[in-house]
Each structure stands twice: as C-alpha cells, then as structure tokens.
C-alpha cells in the first residue's frame, strides 16, 4: 500500500499519446470509487478510452480490473456502489436518471465463460432484438448472418442455426456470444477475460476476430494473460490493489514501464 501512495505523487502514470481534445474519446472515467458494502474495492482510475482501439486491462486477481470493467456498463448495479463519473461520448451514465438498459445496449459485454442461452443459435443472436419488438424475418436473418460473420463463426454454424447453442464447443459458443452482443449494435464492447475458458487455437481465432472488430467498435478487454494483452491491444492499463497504476501504449507498458510495480508484474517478478 505504501508503495502505491508513493506512486500517486508521481504525475506521469497515465500517458496518452493522443490529444484528448482532438481525438474521439468514447469512454472516460472520473473520480471513480467502487464499494462492495463499505469496502472500497476500486479507486484512482481516471482513464480515457479512444474510439476504435483495443485497450487491455491487466493485473493480478483481485486488482479491481473486472470490477472496473463491469462498472462501465453499469453491470455492478445492485452488487456494488459506484461513485464518480462514467462518461460515454461525454454523457455521464452513472446517474440515476439514465436508462440503464439503453446504456447496456450501447455498451455490450462478453463474459468470462461462454454463456449461450438454452435456445437455438438463431434465437441466441436475435433474442434481444425480438425483445425490442423486431420480428421481421428478413431483418433478423440479415442480422444473424452479419453478426455471425463478424464474429467469424458463420461458416461453422450456418447450416445448424436451429440447433441448440448449448451443443457448441467452447470457442464457437464464445463467438456466438460475441455475435449476440453485436446484434443490438453497440458502440463499445467490454470483454471480461473472454478467452480464459478456451483452448489455445480458439483463443488465437478469437483474437483475430477482435482485431477485425476494432474497425467498428471500441473494445476494452480484461485479461490476465499478458501475452494476449501484448499481442492484441493498442493500449494497456495495469491495475493493482484496486487502483489503475499505469496507462500507456501497450508496447511501452511492456517494454519501458514508468512504474516499478508494472515492471515487476510484466516481467513476472511479482509478489
């Protein structure tokens, strides 16, 4: 803890290589504090996320990275108390008046374990649209094809769209979950260790998919796999003990970290 306090006095922990005035910032957090009950779980994370980039959140278990991610689309509602501002395209979405369902539609989420619903693949992808009153078969068909193609799983499942999604392999299921999240046309995609339950081949395919998706979406991904963060992301945030310690371009975080703690973590001397 003492270490961390020292660090706070050093000004240059969060280094942006872009000019925030001119660049399109999709998401930004200010003075964020997250409490579980009365315990402060997460603070000191004033971060900016640039449009059409992949930002990786890394750090040891319990460092607060998942808690932070889940706050971004208000998935912590009812679980934790979130104070401070969460700006989505400049609008603070962390206020009671905001319609949380619309927020979550625009800021989609993919979870650690593939969690397809006990429905057909087709219904998995179109379910949220149907709940929003879209029943036109042609529209739905088009969405299914586009999103499954975007998630790079169309070729494997196009002949079995009516099959239960529970029968898919882990990698395929996770992609269907991505397609499902894309179907409601979000801007931002939050991924919470999406590859932790997948085998190496599926993981590689998933990463390729995400790189492709970056063109249309702003992606924030939590991972505890440092190689993955290094391979995949444009920017990296290192979290530890409930704080964001360092933010920089991924390459710099991994090669020339500004903070000793980050250095220890990325070089594996942590603990």
């Amino acid at each position: 803890m003492q270490n961390t306090t020292e660090l706070n006095n050093k000004p240059k922990r969060f280094i942006y290589d872009f000019n925030p005035e001119e660049t399109d910032i999709t998401m930004q957090t200010k003075d964020l504090e997250i409490y579980y009950g009365k315990t402060l779980a997460m603070h000191n994370a004033d971060l900016k996320f640039q449009k059409n980039t992949i930002t990786a959140l890394i750090g040891p278990s319990g460092s607060g990275k998942s808690t932070f991610l889940r706050a971004l689309n208000r998935m912590n509602d009812g679980v934790a108390t979130v104070k401070g501002e969460i700006l989505y395209q400049g609008v603070n979405i962390n206020q009671p008046k905001i319609d949380v369902y619309e927020v979550r539609r625009r800021i989609g989420m993919v979870f650690q374990r593939p969690n397809p619903f006990a429905k057909s693949i087709y219904d998995n992808v179109t379910f949220a649209l149907q709940r929003r009153g879209i029943h036109d078969k042609k529209t739905l068909d088009r969405v299914v094809e586009t999103t499954l193609k975007q998630a790079a799983v169309w070729d494997q499942v196009k002949d079995s769209l009516n099959k239960s999604a529970l029968s898919l392999s882990g990698g395929q299921a996770q992609r269907v979950c991505i397609a499902r999240a894309l179907a409601v046309r979000p801007d931002v995609l939050l991924l919470d260790e999406p590859a932790s339950a997948l085998d190496p081949v599926s993981t590689q395919q998933l990463e390729a998919t995400l790189r492709e998706l970056k063109k249309d979406y702003t992606i924030i991904i939590v991972t505890h796999n440092m190689q993955q963060a290094a391979r995949l992301s444009d920017y990296t945030v290192f979290f530890n003990m409930g704080e964001a310690i360092e933010y920089n371009k991924t390459r710099k975080v991994f090669t020339r970290p500004k903070v000793q703690m980050t250095d220890d973590y990325v070089s594996g001397n942590f603990g």
Partner: peptide, 21 residues
C-alpha cells in the same frame, strides 16, 4: 450539442424499464 441529444436519448425511460417495473 450532439452530447445533449444523446443525453436526452439515454434519459428517456425505455420500454424495457417499464416492463421491468
């Protein structure tokens, strides 16, 4: 300006919110 438009959209109570109630 665009922000205000978005803010308005986000603050409108959606059908989903009514359904939840």
């Amino acid at each position: 300006m665009q922000n205000q438009k978005l803010a308005k959209k986000l603050m409108k109570k959606s059908k989903t919110a009514r359904y939840e109630r």
